[in-house]
């Protein structure tokens, strides 16, 4: 069985993002980028399936700028067998992503697509669902545990009320939640070996997909700054300030 794992290159979760001076979006110059954490988890799960003898091949795919090669190399070091980079502009919308992935699925014929539940930059949480719809496959989203049987996959989902377990027939899409696993490190020996693994580069054009962006970003604003607290010296002052400044009493 082949497993396809889509990966997005995003601003690293430790970085404090800031807006461009003209407010047109997030300033990404010189900013540290890395693999979307949920995608890392999806990749880890795919590699574990392979190590358990349940999958034969793990293919990592990323859609975006040329630098995306970095995260694909990391994926290869973490156990993916080969990688595909689809060169496109940054921040391709979910529907386009889903269409490109559908085209890759048609070529590669995986039985399972394991992906992150959402990207931490735009939080869309749409690509997996859209891909399932385009392919007409079953889907198990927000997975915190998966169990693979011959022709189906049992997915434990993190839902508001707790955990829900469903069975989805293969081929299927599964999107990973935080608790699915703890990803491994890319070790130095594995990074060295990964340099020799195949990484193919293609474009949406070659895959027969026309990328058409449908959304326009009107405005991006920073969250309001929290006012620093003050220290009051007496209960009387507290009451006074609550009454006259905060207006809550």
């Amino acid at each position: 069985m082949k497993v396809l794992v889509p990966l997005k290159r995003v601003v690293d979760f430790n970085v404090n993002i800031r807006l461009k001076a003209d407010g047109s979006g997030v300033d990404k110059t010189n900013v540290k980028m890395s693999m979307n954490p949920f995608d890392e988890i999806a990749l880890e799960e795919a590699v574990r399936l392979k190590e358990a003898g349940k999958a034969d091949e793990v293919i990592a795919v990323s859609i975006g700028v040329e630098k995306g090669q970095d995260i694909l190399r990391t994926a290869l070091a973490c156990g993916a067998d080969r990688a595909i980079l689809v060169i496109a502009e940054e921040d391709v919308e979910p529907l386009n992503i889903a269409k490109i992935l559908a085209a890759i699925v048609a070529e590669e014929k995986p039985e399972l697509v394991l992906m992150g539940k959402q990207a931490i930059d735009n939080d869309c949480n749409q690509s997996g669902q859209m891909l399932a719809a385009l392919l007409g496959w079953g889907q198990g989203t927000f997975a915190s545990k998966i169990e693979l049987a011959d022709d189906a996959i049992q997915v434990t989902r993190e839902v508001d009320a707790g955990l829900q377990t469903i069975k989805v027939n293969l081929p299927a899409i599964v999107t990973a939640d935080l608790r699915l696993n703890t990803p491994r490190y890319a070790t130095l020996p594995n990074i060295m070996k990964a340099k020799k693994k195949p990484l193919d580069i293609t474009t949406p054009d070659k895959l027969g997909v026309e990328v058409r962006q449908r959304l326009t970003i009107l405005e991006t604003v920073e969250p309001p700054v929290r006012q620093p607290g003050i220290r009051v010296t007496s209960v009387a002052e507290l009451v006074d300030r609550l009454k006259n400044e905060a207006g809550v009493l």
């Binding site: 703890t182 990803p183 491994r184 490190y185 070790t187 130095l188 020996p189």
Partner: peptide, 16 residues
């Protein structure tokens, strides 16, 4: 992947 107490966490990977 060493824990604070020095033990090896599940994702432990030895240096090279």
């Amino acid at each position: 992947g060493r824990a604070a107490d020095g033990s090896e966490k599940p994702e432990f990977a030895a240096g090279m």
